[in-house]
Amino acid sequence: MSAQTQTTGTARREEPRIVVRTGPGKFVTDTRAVFTREILLTLRDPFTLIFSLLQPLVFLGLFAPLLTGTFADTGMTTAQTLQWFVPGVIVMISLFGTSMTGSNLLYELMTGSYERVLATPLDRSAILVGRALKEFAPLVVQGLLIAVLCLPFGFRFNPLHAVAALALLGIFGIGVGALSYALGLAAKNREWLFWGVQQALIFPLLILSGMMLPLETGPGWMQVAARFNPLTYIVDAERALFAGDVTDPVVLWGLVAAVVTCAGGLLVGVRTTRRHT
């Protein structure tokens, strides 16, 4: 009897302990889990990645020749025009991609899979960051591919500076993705509301950032509005980084705009997620 009791006690002492992660460790683990789940779904259907690459290539093929003619009076060569234009195209890809985070959520809300995600002990901010990074990761490949395709035409970039530019763009993309996620929750069962707000905001932001066309020749009110557009500072910072000018003050302003957008997006996103839980 005593031997049996001793064996049972020993077995109990040898039971593995369950370690529950908390703090930054849990956030990183949960973010990796969400990102892995989401990116595997994307890799199973690579056609969407190929199709999403067509739009920036169309912009590049149509706008670049027009800009070359526009900047001809200023003495800018084709290479200099691409140096100005390509970073804007890469920012455009990121903005379009991360702002679509909420559209995927709408589908999960209709199928009921979103409720199963909320039933897990995942950190709410990790869900937002993981999904935003999932949208951003393919865009890195697309952006680098576009940059490589422009190399024969005179476009130049330093790999380390390009990594810094993409990292800054990733911080900004997390904030945009979180805001899109919050919009998707707010527009639950009203898909038209999500697309209406998304389209109404994204195109003015694009135009007022000087991404496609320079704003120096625009009216005064447009130049003033551009100063209140965080995307303006992101575009300027990307152009400076791809050109190799890391010490340009616009890089610091771009970092500030990216961090503020990221923090504000996560704050709104987490609050909206908890409110709809």
Rank of each mutant, 00 (worst) to 15 (best):
M1C: 05
M1G: 13
Q6K: 07
T7G: 06
T7I: 12
G9V: 08
R12E: 12
E14Y: 07
P16W: 05
P16G: 09
T22R: 14
G23C: 11
G25E: 11
K26I: 09
F27K: 11
T29R: 14
T29F: 14
R32N: 09
A33R: 13
E38D: 15
L41N: 06
R44F: 04
D45R: 15
P46S: 10
L49K: 06
L49I: 14
F51V: 15
S52M: 14
L53H: 08
L54Q: 04
Q55H: 10
L57C: 13
L60F: 15
G61K: 10
G61D: 10
L62F: 15
F63Q: 01
P65L: 11
L67I: 07
L67W: 07
T68S: 13
T68W: 06
T70Q: 14
W84C: 02
P87Q: 04
I90F: 07
V91M: 06
V91P: 02
I93C: 10
M100E: 11
M100S: 15
G102R: 08
N104Y: 15
L106S: 09
L109Y: 04
V117P: 01
V117K: 06
V117G: 00
V117L: 15
A119N: 14
T120V: 02
T120G: 05
D123G: 15
D123K: 11
R124E: 13
I127C: 10
L128C: 08
V129E: 05
V129H: 10
R131I: 04
A132Y: 08
A132P: 03
L133F: 11
L133W: 05
F136W: 13
A137H: 02
I146Q: 02
F155L: 15
F155Q: 06
R156P: 05
R156V: 10
P159H: 01
P159C: 03
H161N: 12
L169A: 08
I171S: 05
G173R: 10
G177A: 12
A182Y: 09
L183I: 09
G184H: 00
A187M: 01
E191Q: 15
E191L: 13
F194Y: 15
W195E: 05
V197E: 05
V197G: 00
Q198R: 10
Q199W: 11
L201T: 11
F203R: 00
L206W: 12
S209G: 01
G210I: 00
G210A: 05
M211V: 08
T217A: 11
T217I: 07
G218L: 09
A226F: 03
A226Y: 08
A226E: 01
A226R: 01
P230D: 04
P230N: 02
L231T: 08
T232E: 00
T232N: 02
T232F: 03
I234V: 14
D236P: 06
A240D: 02
F242N: 06
A243C: 01
G244Y: 03
V246W: 12
V250P: 03
V251G: 00
L252Y: 07
G254M: 04
L255K: 01
A257H: 04
V259H: 04
V260K: 01
T261V: 05
C262G: 03
C262Q: 02
L267Y: 11
R271Y: 07
T273L: 14
